[in-house]
Design a protein around this nucleic acid. Structure first.
Lengths: 208, 208
DNA sequence: GTTTTCATGTAACCCGTTACATGATTCA
DNA sequence: TGAATCATGTAACGGGTTACATGAAAAC
């Protein structure tokens, strides 16, 4: 048994932290609220939910508005609502506090960032800085490799590498800004939504 | 059997097109010459080579400089050099000519681009334009989803989405430039290298 | 009343990695 | 001579998708 995904598990626990949901809705949130992320299929999601229940981190309950919920019939299928247990919440907090190397790999980092609103500030800093140095290592290797092979490559290959490096450099600059903001204490911390708009916090924020 | 990977197969055929190689070297080239791409492990590469041989697209031969090559002993292992067969080359040309939707998915597109030097111009155009419209669709969905859920999201999630969209927009602009260049006839076609102009960034580069 | 959409699930497969096993060659 | 690197391979597992099967509720 056990489909232990890491990212998916993290995302599911995090989303359920806000409010109980059933699988179908959960899946949609994974593509929207949780952003730009890859869409997990039901074939991944449902088995994952089962194992999380088995771990004791979630409970299954029939949807309250569901008429089948109270029917004593066996075998009928009703909408299943998943709710985070106290143990599940605790486990999620543990995950949030982790700052190991995994946390700055491409995939993990995305989810980690998405839940920064629930993350302690020093943890945020460590994750951001870890991510940055990971990217800087990557840049270093790309530069080295490029220097070694520059002449043997045709223009398209070269252009591809150039664009790739530029993307990474761009993300590093992004991280620098974020780290700067955190350092200045303007980081939007735990559970304080900072009012996505008028308020203070960030004069450079346009987007609307 | 059959590990048919698509990208890996493509890359292997393309690299062997230049010159015969053995697996170990091939693998290194996948991380350098072929760029920024993911490093396939031997556990992927070697079985893949076997299936390509079985398809008749490659031949295995003992390395010429290898003393074991001529030894009539059984069981001794020598360095194996893989060479593209005429059928293999033909197959690769077929793959190069394909412009189906697969060609503009993230992974495929990278390899396709890396071999643009061997690709016909009209094919290059179709691939670039296909990629662009794929990205534009993605942007559209992101914008729509963002418009729907903006208020419910905290600042970090919002920032993540913003950065994600900006990355995609940036790639679209990159594609626009490339398409423009191709249209102007300045595309570096089959084996005609042009200046590596714009970059220059670092004249202190030596290392060779 | 039939088509969509919502909702849950499973089995088969795919593409890849990790960990391991083996042995040859190079180099300090 | 022993360690590092080159070189080839395989079995077990991991994390995911596709295609399929089922059925209820909503929309037309």
């Amino acid at each position: 048994m056990s489909r232990r995904s890491g990212v998916l598990e993290f995302a599911v626990l995090g989303l359920l932290r806000e409010s109980p949901m059933h699988g179908y809705e959960l899946r949609k949130r994974l593509n929207t609220s949780l952003g730009v992320f890859r869409a997990f299929s039901y074939g991944t999601l449902y088995p994952c939910l089962k194992t999380l229940v088995a771990q004791g981190w979630l409970t299954e309950e029939a949807a309250p508005e569901d008429p089948l919920a109270t029917a004593p019939l066996g075998g009928r299928r009703a909408k299943i609502v998943y709710r985070l247990t106290p143990e599940g919440k605790e486990h999620f907090e543990d995950l949030l506090a982790q700052t190991g190397p995994d946390a700055w790999e491409d995939e993990q980092f995305g989810v980690r960032f998405a839940f920064f609103g629930h993350t302690e500030r020093d943890v945020r800093m460590r994750v951001l800085e870890g991510r940055r140095s990971r990217l800087e290592e990557r840049l270093e290797r790309m530069r080295a490799s490029l220097a070694r092979t520059r002449e043997r490559l045709d223009d398209y290959t070269l252009e591809l590498q150039r664009h790739g490096m530029e993307s990474v450099e761009r993300e590093v600059r992004w991280l620098n800004e974020l780290i700067e903001t955190e350092r200045a204490g303007r980081g939007r911390a735990k559970g304080r939504p900072a009012e996505t708009g008028r308020d203070d916090t960030d004069p450079s924020d346009t987007t609307k």
